[in-house]
């Protein structure tokens, strides 16, 4: 027996896909800005282990010498990104959806088990509910990161008027680095998210498009 189960509500789905476009736009325009002073790197002494990014990267994606364009898009799309994000948070609070999303006291243990399972180190199946502990941490965490991007962004966009915020974040240069680090975080989130979606398969991806998934019922 199989039945159809409603999984993701319509506003959640729309906001999810809007965010895909908006966040991609923010990262792309952010790269156009970062190009103008791409100083972040991991190095030990004089040895550069990792430089973000090699020139080939900019050349391949045509990101060079487009600072003005990057700023123009970044400071236009930011309104959409902020509005969509705040609407999402507001909706999850208002609809009660947050109960599925926010980690509780069991989430940490569960998240650890899910991770062991996904890395094929444990045979304990993740619990069958809307979001397991690992998902709760990931989906709540990425929302907090979004808030962090807005705050660190504001701190470097208007560092005099929001001087207190810039100060709280450790100063202008720290805030700029934090703003960038959060972007690296999104990219890592994206990679794991995509890997998990591929693993979970079509049924799961389809649920984020049409809202429903097919559930196999165990016949007694």
């Amino acid at each position: 027996m199989a039945r159809i189960e409603y999984k993701h509500r319509r506003p959640i789905r729309w906001m999810h896909w809007f965010n895909v476009v908006l966040l991609s736009g923010m990262i792309w325009s952010g790269l156009l800005i970062y190009w103008a002073n791409d100083i972040y790197r991991i190095q030990i002494g004089q040895r550069v282990l990792l430089k973000l990014f090699p020139d080939a990267f900019y050349n391949t994606f045509g990101l060079s010498a487009r600072l003005a364009e990057g700023m123009a898009w970044h400071f236009a799309l930011m309104w959409g990104f902020a509005t969509n994000g705040l609407a999402y948070v507001g909706y999850t609070l208002f609809s009660g959806e947050w109960r599925h999303l926010v980690p509780n006291r069991n989430s940490f243990r569960e998240a650890w088990q899910v991770m062991l399972h996904d890395l094929h180190l444990s045979r304990v199946e993740p619990p069958k509910r809307k979001f397991n502990g690992a998902q709760q941490f990931a989906y709540t965490g990425v929302i907090l990161m979004g808030g962090g991007s807005l705050l660190t962004g504001l701190a470097i966009f208007k560092p005099v008027q929001f001087g207190w915020l810039t100060w709280l974040l450790g100063g202008y240069e720290c805030a700029r680095f934090e703003h960038f680090a959060l972007t690296v975080g999104y990219v890592l989130f994206f990679l794991i998210h995509i890997a998990q979606v591929i693993r979970a398969g079509w049924n799961s991806l389809r649920a984020m498009v049409c809202g429903y998934e097919l559930v196999e019922e165990v016949t007694p």
Partner: peptide
């Protein structure tokens, strides 16, 4: 979560 009960085929067709 609301459910739509149907026969397996119906469910698959409806979802499609």
């Amino acid at each position: 979560m609301s459910t739509t009960s149907a026969t397996p085929t119906d469910a698959a067709v409806e979802l499609r």
